[in-house]
């Protein structure tokens, strides 16, 4: 009896195992690793998107938060997952790129293949509404006269805002003082209290701030973001500063190519769903879809740029 049972069980298991590849992705849930804590921008965006991808693939996609070390913990977890297509992860730049410059990574960045870029959110510098600086040029002019006197609130070393500040210093030949804060909200509080002169945030965060209290000086994108069509870019104002946060999804490169294509296809269709677009609009997400291949193609240029900036910092120290 027992023997019979175990034979039956074994054959049942075998058939499940045998069917696993054929049934992908419907026979078990696909785990979506999010590299940031619950409630952050990336987390909320992906939790909003997940049900639409679920509908496309006909499977469940539970979200798993693995925050820490600006994403390295999540990317390491992705690299250690089985390459069976049942694990995907969020992917964020500049973190994913800058960590390749200045850290000994515990995973191979080349083994992670982007599936889709979902959002591109340019950086911006904002000041108090009552500030004397109307444009980036005003800020630069003052900083030229008073080296180091202009304090710029950032969210830490090597973050978007910090890299943007370094580019501006380089482009305009000025000296600014970076003041690190624990997060964008703390920096914003310090700005409103007049404790720092300027802070760097993303355009998405700027457009949801109280517009009567703060003013943006420039956005650091090649083209004006759909969220802020009236805000000139830094390049339009004559300063070569490019910095934006990109958020997307990725899988291991050794997941069978057909499965990766199917995942990418499902994400693309989900993103185009009008219902999702409506929710993205409510959340002020600057949607900017790029296919995994196109996004990958852009990365080396960005990486070189970061490498250059960070090398300059090292020299300066």
């Amino acid at each position: 009896m027992t023997a019979l049972k175990s034979v039956a069980l074994a054959s049942a298991m075998l058939s499940v195992a045998g069917a696993a590849w054929a049934d992908w992705p419907t026979d078990r849930p696909i785990e979506m690793i999010v590299a940031f804590a619950p409630g952050g921008g990336t987390d909320i965006m992906l939790r909003t998107l997940a049900p639409f991808v679920e509908a496309e693939l006909g499977t469940q996609i539970p979200v798993m938060n693995r925050p820490g070390a600006s994403g390295e913990i999540a990317y390491t977890a992705l690299s250690q997952a089985k390459p069976d297509g049942y694990t995907i992860s969020s992917l964020n730049t500049p973190g994913f790129l800058t960590m390749q410059v200045d850290r000994n990574l515990r995973f191979d960045p080349a083994a992670i293949c982007p599936l889709a870029r979902i959002v591109e959110d340019p950086g911006t510098f904002i000041v108090q509404a009552g500030s004397d600086y109307q444009t980036l040029a005003d800020l630069v002019a003052y900083a030229k006269e008073h080296p180091g006197a202009v304090s710029v609130g950032t969210t830490g070393l090597g973050t978007d805002e910090h890299l943007a500040m370094l580019q501006l210093e380089q482009a305009a030949g000025i000296d600014l003082t970076a003041v690190p804060f624990a997060g964008a909200n703390e920096a914003r509080t310090a700005l409103l209290g007049g404790h720092v002169n300027v802070i760097g945030i993303n355009v998405g965060e700027y457009t949801t701030s109280d517009q009567n209290a703060v003013r943006a000086l420039a956005q650091f994108a090649e083209q004006r973001s759909t969220l802020a069509p009236d805000l000139p870019t830094a390049r339009e104002q004559g300063f070569d500063v490019l910095m934006s946060s990109e958020r997307g999804l990725a899988a291991r490169c050794d997941v069978p190519e057909a499965d990766r294509a199917r995942l990418a296809q499902a994400i693309e269709t989900a993103l185009a769903n009008p219902e999702f677009q409506e929710k993205a609009k409510q959340q002020q997400l600057p949607l900017s879809y790029l296919s995994g291949a196109d996004w990958t193609a852009q990365m080396p240029a960005r990486l070189d740029r970061f490498r250059e900036i960070l090398a300059m910092v090292k020299e300066g120290q």
């Binding site: 925050p67 820490g68 070390a69 390295e72 913990i73 830490g156 070393l157 690190p180």
Partner: peptide, 17 residues
């Protein structure tokens, strides 16, 4: 936060934050 240096992490990724 200011220099990006690791402090007392003993190389453990989990202690970065």
């Amino acid at each position: 936060a200011e220099t990006g240096a690791e402090r007392l992490t003993f190389g453990a990724l989990e202690l970065f934050d």
